[in-house]
Design a protein around this nucleic acid. Structure first.
Lengths: 341, 341
DNA sequence: CTGAAAGCGCTAACAT
DNA sequence: ATGTTAGCGCTTTCAG
């Protein structure tokens, strides 16, 4: 059990050629008309000595690594962590392993990461792409690599992608706020040209304009550091004292918003009503519970991995590209309900 | 740029032997006394055509895959996700990539996962081990594989490990509750024989017994499903109406506990004081903010990866095993402060 | 039905 | 100082 045995070891032990062993191990015994009893012998022996083919050698030979590269914005963000969890599970079940990394929405870092993945000969890519990565993704697909984007897509790049209906989601949430009677509804989000962000802004804007209300948008530079989110947010709040409702564009901004509210002693929903994008334990437990736009995590993960596996299977087949758009669920909780005055 | 070029392609193009190229690329030019100008030429050409050595072939040849296997209990748990994030970063910086998976604390699943990692020739293992995995870990170390355990260790297996001072953490937290004047302090945790859990129970028990108070422990079967945590918890609460403070053994149980409190209309800390293990955004934002035992995430990740990298470097050197025990930080918030009656 | 042999791309003795 | 060559362990023609 100590020594790593190779296919030739077992071939020798059984006095058979390694070719035969290889065929048997790869289920091509039938096809090659290898005697059932030989198959049996080999299988038993392999089992017995615990022989495992060297997957590195196999990969080198076949060009397949049975690895999927997963690039999320930030694995420590619960949204991405949950999706990664589900994807991981499905992937392993299908004989693929996942190597992952966080892009931080940093284009340069992402480029390097893609390079590394290429280096490693991953068989397929799952990416929540940052801006400016179009060329690299294109070069990937051009070289025939299966790529599935999620959470957002790249407008001018043809790939499969899975996302949610961002525009309707924020439109709907904003409408809800308006219906409740709020007049100065702000939208706070990250400054970004990513498709999902643009749509979220649009959804808000459409609803507000349709209602003839003032558009109040605060864009914050993307950053993981909490302070750099909270500072501009605090400023915004101070400068716009008339705001009576806020829609937060991401879970991270949402929680920061909650902190600001606490810090400033604002009550929800009496002083300011709140809705956040992404559902999240903290929103459910907060008092009052925070209304949230819940993304269908399971469905997203399911679709992502299904689409990718499909491409991996019929590698050649010109399965046409798919853009899947999933529905979100507005979970209405107390934070967005107008106090019956 | 389309065709994958190999080392021999570039050797031919430059009319040099591939050995020379190999040496240059691996920084052994000096050592091999290769002329500076040749080195220059080669480097420039390599850069120009964007040649990247095939890491698979390299791995096959050298037996090193530059991959670290990371096995956490559940990547979607914020504690593990945060650690994974930090480990990932440090690993990539050092030229290692991470392949990861969640064990679910399932021994059988973990065994298979370890097998898979072995198959993939990962160079080192970072594991938060479930119970019953002793033999497999041992066989790993016996075969000379670098292994670092974290969050817990295996009592009868000699490995490096990084953990926190669980016993003192719960002891301290319990003392705090007692000092506040609470008389019926319960401890709710997962039923487990893992070292960290055992110590957490002991810490609680020691403090309680030292104070001559009644020991009130509720153990819940490990499960991800929220309902299967909440049901027994609810039952426990109903059967022990005299409890005036609870210490929760993990973040997951903690948030479930919060939900139960809300559901039962219990006020914190007037009806029941609360402390949870693991700090977590939700605890900070909750009203009242929840006292929590904060683990030093950064330090844990730092230590884990440092220890592993060290072992990876001096592979042979008999660096003696390290058990690192880190301190936690009891973040005292309102939920555990006795209302001045 | 089975075996010999080539070769995936790279490294490292061993020449020269 | 640079080139030759033998594998790492596997798959896969091509011949028996």
């Amino acid at each position: 059990m100590k020594k790593k045995l190779s296919i030739v070891d077992i071939a020798n032990a059984l006095n058979v050629s390694k070719t035969t062993i290889s065929f048997i191990l790869n289920g091509r015994a039938q096809e090659k008309r290898i005697s059932a009893e030989l198959v049996e012998t080999v299988m038993k022996y392999v089992e017995e000595v615990g022989y495992k083919p060297n997957s590195l050698a196999k990969s080198l030979r076949t060009g397949k690594s049975n690895t999927i590269g997963l690039m999320v914005e930030d694995i420590s963000n619960p949204f991405f962590a949950s999706i990664a969890r589900l994807i991981e599970e499905r992937a392993y079940k299908n004989g693929y392993k996942i190597i992952y990394c966080s892009t931080d929405n940093d284009t340069q870092k992402t480029k390097e990461l893609i390079d590394m993945f290429r280096d490693r000969h991953v068989d397929g890519y799952i990416i929540s792409p940052p801006e400016g990565i179009e060329e690299d993704i294109e070069s990937l697909t051009k070289d025939g690599m299966p790529v599935v984007l999620f959470d957002r897509h790249l407008p001018n790049v043809d790939t499969d992608f899975i996302e949610i209906d961002n525009l309707f989601s924020t439109y709907n949430a904003t409408r809800h706020l308006i219906d409740q009677g709020f007049k100065n509804v702000a939208f706070v989000t990250f400054a970004s040209n990513q498709t999902q962000m643009i749509d979220r802004v649009k959804g808000y804007q459409n609803a507000i304009e349709a209602a003839g209300l003032p558009v109040l948008i605060k864009e914050i530079l993307f950053n993981q550091k909490e302070e750099l989110i909270m500072n501009p947010l605090r400023e915004f709040m101070i400068q716009n004292t008339n705001i009576d409702a806020i829609l937060f564009g991401t879970n991270h901004i949402g929680t920061c918003g909650l902190k600001i509210m606490q810090e400033m002693g604002k009550n929800t929903p009496t002083d300011i009503a709140i809705i956040s994008f992404d559902d999240y334990e903290v929103f459910e437990l907060y008092s009052p519970p925070v209304t949230a736009i819940a993304q269908p995590i399971d469905e997203i993960a399911d679709n992502v991995i299904s689409v990718l596996l499909e491409k991996l299977d019929y590698h050649s087949a010109s399965t046409k590209l798919k853009g899947v758009i999933l529905k979100t669920n507005l979970k209405i909780r107390k934070s967005s309900i107008k106090a019956s005055a």
